[in-house]
């Protein structure tokens, strides 16, 4: 068995086995990919993609496994062994995952690898643009200090990003500093400005599959809560104008603020059941 790193240079060799929404992340600074091949000229029989976290912070490095595919148990076991070696190189102290419930062979393989997998409610909730547009929050005026990021110069955008990052905001994005403005939907993503500076963003990325995902929602001004509500209203209205009603929008409840907001906007809405687990590295 031969293992190869999946990079932007060889990505086209793996597009058939990788999820469309995962492939666009290959090439980003903190994403890694590993594939197993039976022989040199054989196609990949197993693949794992993970995202390194906290590289830029004074915390232990972590790895979130974002995609897993293995034709059989043996391939899966070997894949995880190879990945463990890479985790050690990157000084990862903890790895974790959240996969669809029906991921083939995953439960037994990850259990054997020491992950303690369990089925639980996933952190993502998926709503449609139509559902968002029907919310009360979507009604009303948007103040003129909220504008689409497409109206910003690149330097203004970067200064705004630095401003937010200095206040500890990064959303879902470990590589927030390196992602270009073009990564985000320019009409639906928006920002708040005060005194000529950007001090809040609602950044939405359109994935290959056509789903939208909210990747950063923050404001650092004195009235940051109101600013976030204004930005939400702006983005919902913009999304309703630009996309069909049935377009899916993913809200990842990665911290308490987003959990509380989604509970308020969509009370009772639950995430799908997923297979989740974690493991301490460097055992």
């Amino acid at each position: 068995m031969e293992s190869r790193n999946i990079t932007s240079d060889n990505l086209e060799d793996y597009e058939k086995i990788l999820d469309a929404d995962v492939t666009e992340n290959i090439g980003r600074d903190n994403f890694r990919g590993l594939a197993l091949h039976k022989g040199k000229d054989d196609p990949a029989c197993a693949a794992l993609i993970w995202e390194l976290k906290n590289l830029d912070e004074d915390k232990d490095n972590e790895a979130e496994l974002v995609y897993y595919f293995a034709g059989d148990k043996k391939n899966g076991e070997q894949l995880l062994e190879e990945a463990e070696a890479e985790f050690q190189e990157d000084e990862v102290k903890r790895s974790f995952f959240e996969f669809p419930e029906d991921t083939e062979n995953a439960e037994s393989i990850f259990k054997q690898a020491g992950f303690h997998p369990e089925k639980r409610e996933g952190r993502d909730i998926t709503v449609t643009v139509g559902e968002l547009a029907a919310l009360d929050i979507a009604k009303g005026n948007v103040p003129d200090f909220v504008s689409p990021i497409g109206n910003l110069m690149v330097r203004q955008f970067r200064k705004g990003i630095a401003n937010c990052m200095f206040h500890g905001k990064k959303g879902l994005l470990e590589d927030l500093a390196s992602l270009p403005m073009s990564w985000y939907d320019p009409e639906v993503s928006c920002c708040v400005e005060a005194d000529g500076k950007v001090n809040g963003f609602l950044l939405i990325h359109k994935m290959n599959s056509g789903k939208l995902i909210v990747e950063l929602m923050c404001a650092i001004g004195p009235d940051y809560r109101m600013d976030i509500l204004h930005m939400l209203r702006f983005s919902i209205k913009a999304a309703a104008e630009k996309y069909p009603e049935e377009t899916q929008v993913i809200l990842r409840r990665h911290n308490d603020a987003v959990k509380n907001l989604s509970a308020r906007l969509f009370p009772g809405k639950q995430g799908e059941t997923v297979l989740a687990g974690e493991r301490e590295e460097g055992r």
Binding site: D56, R155, A177
Partner: peptide
């Protein structure tokens, strides 16, 4: 003097100031 410590944020700030 700023509260944040993320190196990537520091680098953006330095880049923007240097460019201007």
């Amino acid at each position: 003097l700023a509260a944040g410590q993320r190196e990537s944020a520091i680098k953006i700030l330095i880049e923007c100031v240097t460019e201007e």
